[in-house]
Design a protein around this nucleic acid. Structure first.
Lengths: 112, 112
DNA sequence: CCGGATCCCACAAGATACTG
DNA sequence: CAGTATCTTGTGGGATCCGG
C-alpha cells in the first residue's frame, strides 16, 4: 500500500482524501508522531500531511495531542470513531487485492 | 442515499467518483436504461452521468449495450466485477448509517 | 520539530445549449 | 432517446519558502 508500485490509488474505493487511508493504517497500532508518519508517507509533503490530519481531526477520527516538554512533540491517535473505520478499510484492501488485475486488464483493453 | 437530506456525501468512504456508488446501487437489480437512471439521479446532469458511466465502463465494472430497434435504447448492466463491489458498498453504507451522527457532532463542535 | 503562507495547476463537476 | 460541445468554477493536491 505504501509502495509506489502498489496500485492502491487505482482502487475505486477510497476512505477520506488521498492519504487518509494510509494515515489510518499507520495509526492502527497506536499513537504516532508527525515525523514518524512521514517515514512511511515519504511522498507526501508536510503541508498536505497536515491538511489530511486536520481534516481527520475535524471529523473526530483522530486526536492531536501536543507534548510541550523541551522539544516540540505532537502525537496523533485514532479515536474510537476512527478505529471503526478499520473494518471498512480492510474490506477495501481485500477487494483491491482480489481484483486489481481485472481492473488493469479492463483498462488496458479499453485504451490501447 | 438519493435523498438530498441523506448525507451520503458526508461519509468518508467513497466508491469511484461522486455518483458511482449510487449508479451501482441503481443497477444492482438488473440492467437499466439511461433515462431510467436519470429518475433517481435527478440532480445529476446528463453529461456528468455519462462521464461516470463511461468511467465505470473503462474499469470493466459496467457494460453498455445499444439496442438499435427503431427507437434508440441504451442499457447499462453491472459486470461480475461490478457486482463484487456491492459487498464493500454495503459495508460503506452500514458504516455511514451507524456513525453519521457522531460525524456531525464532531464537525459542529469543531467549527461553531 | 511541526508546521503556516503563498502560489500554482490539473481536473472534477456543473450550467447551458445543441444534436443524430 | 441518449447523449455532445463549450464554458466556467471550485477545489484537491503539490512546490517552495518561511517561522515559532
Amino acid at each position: 500500500m505504501f509502495d509506489p508500485v502498489c496500485p492502491s490509488d487505482l482502487s475505486p474505493i477510497r476512505i477520506g482524501d488521498k492519504w487518509a487511508g494510509m494515515i489510518i493504517r499507520c495509526l492502527e497500532d497506536g499513537p504516532r508522531r508527525f515525523s514518524e508518519l512521514r517515514v512511511p508517507l515519504r511522498r507526501v509533503t508536510a503541508k498536505v500531511l497536515t491538511q489530511s490530519l486536520r481534516a481527520l481531526e475535524r471529523d473526530g477520527l483522530v486526536v492531536r495531542r501536543v507534548r510541550t516538554g523541551g522539544v516540540r512533540h505532537v502525537e496523533y491517535e485514532l479515536t474510537p470513531l476512527g478505529r471503526s473505520l478499520l473494518g471498512p478499510l480492510d474490506v477495501a484492501c481485500a477487494w483491491a487485492e482480489a481484483h486489481w488485475e481485472q481492473l488493469l486488464d479492463a483498462r488496458e483493453s479499453a485504451s490501447p
